[in-house]
Amino acid sequence: MSAGQRVLVVIPTYDEVENLEPILDRLHAAVPDAHALVVDDGSPDGTGELAEKIAAQDPRVHVLRRTEKSGLGPAYVAGFRWGRAHGYDVLVEMDADGSHHPEQLPLLLAGLEDADLVLGSRWVPGGRVEDWPRRRLLLSRLGNRYTRWALRLPLADATGGFRAVRGELVDRLPFDEVASQGYCFQVDWAWRAVRAGARVAEVPITFSEREFGRSKMTASIVEEALVRVTWWGLQDRLADRLPGRVPRAVPGRVRDGGRSSEVR
């Protein structure tokens, strides 16, 4: 990432009043010049009010309050639009619950030196997960393997939500067409980025289970991801069978921990 570029960390929240202030403190200790946008979906626990109180005291913190809980995807899209409208060059996705370590954000930002999108990956060498039950570990690993196969997407962790992106790539991608609401949103737009020929890199991160509050993962979110990924994969393969259609070979390169591989 070039010196002088403005960084905005978009942090969606819903009932994260216990986690918000500590994560903002850690973010600014790790990257003092970064700004944060808290996108609150009408949290009944006072998260939005706390965010506005912090923002009144710290010019690096901004708040976008929405009236109802409409899902992770729409919250990030709203945050991206706000960030680009306010002149930020780099946008970062980060959870509010402490599962993403702000101390590792400099690794993602450094990866933008020669990439358009950098994914924090749990499943590349050096990445790891702390305090997850075996069932959830298995679900994440199998989900990512299925996604990689179904979409022919050469990413180890397409579902991860700690990532940094150049604003120019955000402007190029059709976020108005992204309908996914849960973590499938992460797969959706990573796939679009690869298909658009973007330079995508993965860097290892440590993912930790939240200490406070309740996980937003539900069976309906998992079901949405399975249905959408399957449908996208079928459409993609059927399109390759159309008369005169050359089987897809996505342009660009994906880097995994500093190694490069052709995208197919």
Rank of each mutant, 00 (worst) to 15 (best):
S140G: 01
P102I: 11
G83H: 01
D97F: 02
A85T: 02
P125A: 12
R141C: 07
D58F: 06
G161N: 08
R135L: 12
R60S: 09
Q104N: 07
L24E: 05
R26C: 10
V124P: 09
A156P: 06
R122Q: 06
G127E: 13
V39R: 05
G46I: 12
N144G: 04
N144Q: 05
L64K: 03
R163T: 01
S99F: 02
L50Y: 11
R136C: 01
V92F: 07
T47P: 05
G160H: 04
N144K: 01
V124A: 07
D89L: 01
G98S: 05
K53Y: 02
G73W: 12
V129D: 05
Y146H: 13
D116R: 00
S140P: 00
I54A: 00
W123N: 02
P32M: 07
L64D: 04
L119E: 03
G71S: 03
D114N: 15
Q104H: 13
L137K: 03
L105T: 10
L153P: 10
A29S: 09
E93S: 05
E103P: 09
A85Y: 03
V129C: 03
N144P: 03
R148W: 13
D131K: 08
D45H: 15
A55D: 00
S121F: 05
W149E: 11
G143Y: 04
A29M: 03
L37F: 02
A75R: 06
G71T: 09
P154E: 11
L109N: 07
A150T: 13
H86R: 09
R60I: 00
S70K: 11
R60N: 10
G79V: 10
W82N: 03
M94H: 02
A75M: 14
A85S: 08
I54M: 00
G71C: 14
R134S: 14
L112M: 13
L155T: 05
H28A: 07
L142T: 15
F162T: 09
Y88W: 15
R135V: 12
D157Q: 03
D131L: 11
D89Y: 07
G126N: 00
V38L: 02
T47L: 08
L151P: 10
Q104F: 11
V129H: 00
A56D: 11
V124R: 13
I54F: 00
G42H: 07
D157L: 04
Q57D: 09
S70L: 14
R145F: 09
V77F: 13
G48Q: 01
P74G: 05
P106A: 06
E68W: 12
L105K: 13
K53A: 08
G48I: 01
E49S: 05
Y76T: 10
D97W: 05
R152N: 15
G73I: 03
A34I: 07
L108Y: 06
P102L: 12
G127I: 10
L105R: 09
A158V: 10
A34D: 08
E103Y: 13
V129Y: 03
E130Y: 08
L138W: 15
T147I: 13
Q57I: 06
A55G: 01
R141F: 08
R84L: 14
S121E: 04
L105E: 11
L155K: 04
V92G: 02
G79H: 04
A36W: 00
N144T: 04
R65V: 06
D40E: 14
L119M: 08
L138A: 15
A56S: 05
P102A: 10
A96L: 02
V61P: 00
L108G: 02
L153V: 11
A36N: 00
